[in-house]
Design a binder for these strands. Sequence first.
RNA 1: UCCACAGUAGCUCAAUGGCAGAGCAAUCGGCUGUUAACCGAUGGGUUCCUGGUUCGAGUCCAGGCUGUGGAGCCA
Length: 444
Amino acid sequence: MTVIQIKDIAQYEGQEVTLRGWVYNRTDKGRLQFIQFRDGTGIAQCVAFKKEMSPEAFEIAGKLTQESSVIVTGTVRKDERAPGIPGGYEVGLSKLELVQMADEYPITPKDHGVEFLMDNRHLWVRSTRQWAILRIRATIINAMRNWLDDNGYMLVDTPILTPSAGEDTTTLFKIDYFGEPAFLAQTGQLYNEANMAAFGKVYCFGPTFRAEKSKTRRHLMEFWMLEPEMAFFSLEDLMDMEEQFISHVVQTVLAKHRAELEILERDTSKLEKVVAPFARISYDEAVERLQKLAAETEDPEQKELLQMEWGGDFGSPHETAIAEMFDQPVFVYNYPSAVKAFYMQPVEGRPEVCRSVDLLAPEGYGEITGGSERISDPALIDERIARIGLPREAYAWYLQLRQYGSVPHAGFGIGLERTVAWICGLPHIRETIPYARMLNRKYP
RNA sequence: UCCACAGUAGCUCAAUGGCAGAGCAAUCGGCUGUUAACCGAUGGGUUCCUGGUUCGAGUCCAGGCUGUGGAGCCA
C-alpha cells in the first residue's frame, strides 16, 4: 500500500496507490460514481465502478456526503477528461474505507454570501480558492525570509507585549499585565533599531495589532508585518534593496504557483512585469501629477476625490491614481515630515520633508511598504520626542541607542496581507489570512 | 465615527399592502464518463427585533440590532 499525495499523482501512472482525504464533490451515475477527492495537496477524480469493487464498498461510495473522510485505493490512469488539481489523471478504485460520514456540509458548490462564509471560515479554508490563497501566502512568507537570510539579514524577534509607548494609545490594544497596563505591539521598529546596532542587518516578522476603527477592504486589527532595519543604509540603499526583495517574492510565486494563480484567475502578465528597478518619484512630483490629473478629469466626482494640496498625506484614491500611472510598483519618497513618524531623518536643507519612502503596488493595491532613513543625531531625536510629547522615561533605552555608536540607518515595514492581496489579485484582505480579525469580527 | 444599501427555508434569491415561492443542499428513486451532471419525488419558514398605521404588513412608518460597500485613519 503506497500512500501518495495528489500533487505527485502523475508519477504513479499505472500503479496502485492509496489516497487519504476528503470528498470534495460527487457525481452519481448509478453504477458509476465520480468522486472529486482532495487531500490538501490537490484534487483528484476517483472513479468507483460497481463491477470493480466489493458490493459493500460500492454502496458506501454511492452514499458519500460532501467532506466525508475516506481512505481509497486504486490504480492511477491518465485521462484527459479527469478534472482536478493538477488534473489529467484519475484513480480507478478497488477499495474504499470510510473514516467518517460527514453531516450535511454547509458550504455547497454554489454561491454564498460574505458573512456566511466568514462565519464558516474554519470550513471555508477547505475550498479551492481559499486553499490557493493560503498556499501562496505560505510561499510569500518563505520567499521573503529566504531572500533576507540569503542576503546577510538576521531574524531577531521583537516583543509583542510592550510597555506604554507614549501619549497616543488609542490605536493600541490594552491588556492587563499583572495589574500594570501593557499593550500589544503595533511595530517592532524601535527594537529593530537596537538590534540593528548589534547585528548590522536585521529583520523581525510577526503579528502586529492596531485598534484602529478602520472598516475597509485593506485593514485588519491583527496583521503580519515584516520589518528589516539596516545599519549604514541610506534612502537610496533602502529603495535598491526593497525592489530586489519584492521582485524576488513575486517571481518566486510565479515560478511555484501557476496552478493556484489560475484558480484565482490572476492576470499573471501584470506580475511578470514586477522586476527591479521600479519607478521612483518624489512626493513633490506625485502631488504635481495628481493636481494635473485632477485638472484634466471630466467626472466631477472623481475630480473631487483627486483634490490634493501639498503637505497632506495621500488618501486611497490618490494612491490608486499614482499607481495607475505605472505598470510596476512605484516608490514615492521625501514625504512632508508632518505626516510621517517622529524618527524619520529630515532632508538636508529642507526640513519640511523627510527621507521616507512608500512603495505603492500597481492595480490599486496601495501602499505595501513604508520606510525611511532614521534620525541618528541624539540631539534631534531627543527634540522630536519632546516636541510630540512622548514621555522621555519610556523612551530612555531608545535615546541611549544614539549615545553609543550612532550610525545612519534605514528600514521599512511590509504588510504581509496586503502583499498577498496584491499578488493574488484579491478584492478584499479578509481572504489573505486564515482567521481574519476585523472591526466586527473575531469569530471563529 | 460618517454616508449609502441590505436582512424571507441550511445557502443564494423571488413575492403590486391581499394564499410564503424557486434553484441549490438534504432524503428517496433512475442512469457506465460526470466536470457546480441530469431526470422524477419528498420534507423543510419566529419573513432580524420592538412598537405603530391598516379590514389585512415580508411589503408602509419609527426606533434598535446585524451585515455589506465606500470615506476617514493606516501597513
